[in-house]
Amino acid sequence: MAKIIVVTSGKGGVGKTTTSASFAVGLANRGYKTAVIDFDIGLRNLDLIMGCERRVVYDFVNVIRGEANLNQALIRDKHAKELFILPASQTRDKDALTLEGVAKVLDELGNTFDYIVCDSPAGIERGAQLAMYFADYAVVVTNPEVSSVRDSDRMLGLLSSKTKRAEEGREPITEHLLLTRYSPKRVTNGDMLSINDVNEILAIPLLGVIPESQAVLRASNSGEPVILDQKSDAGQAYADTIARFLGEQLPHRFIEEKSHWLKRIFSLKEKETV
């Protein structure tokens, strides 16, 4: 049976889709057969981030309604061999996703895949609850600011009460915190919460810290998930995150303020003159 991972946040625009894409590519490149599903009905953009928007013919809702079978709707990713994408529908009918429909699709995928990554829509409504309902793991994507942390806290409450595991009284969902758009400089300035501040409030294990990075926007524009850009800080941070998810112990990087190269030169000069 596949392991189901939900990427969720409550607050919108914090980096769920960016994370889902890189997570899926990361797992697939480690040899796990992975499917990534866009639950953001009406606002699909996972296919854009993955660079497969032109190959979308059928979608998640078509499969649920029986208008297409899974094999017709799944898109083979062009970056990673073991990766498939199930795009969201553009329909405006928010009720197009049903619990039975989602269950059916996940069940079918579960037979052949190792991991299923569910990219949750923002909010705490139906779409977000369906995305998390069957999960075994949750990656709670949080930006270091008060409103995002508050929403993540709410999400954690829902994860522990409104999911299948919770309802059946089984072992709870394994929760991971992923801090994204982290800017050490803004933390030092006091404009952002620090890792410790966030940890203290949410009190769940920290899976990774993704720095605020130009590379993310570049990656989105080119349809290449940022984890493939291993020269970039964000790409490396996502790779570390996958390694930790799979059980490796790695220190967190990109969490200290970089001193500017000019500053470094000046401090060298100062030393010389002394």
Partner: peptide, 27 residues
């Protein structure tokens, strides 16, 4: 004994309530 998160409500009717985990803002 599990964290009580924002938006959650716990009521101990006719008795005491013991919580051995953090209670978030909004709970």
């Amino acid at each position: 004994s599990t964290p009580i998160r924002s938006g959650m409500q716990v009521y101990a009717k006719d008795g005491d309530l013991v919580v051995t985990a953090p209670v978030s803002v909004g709970a």
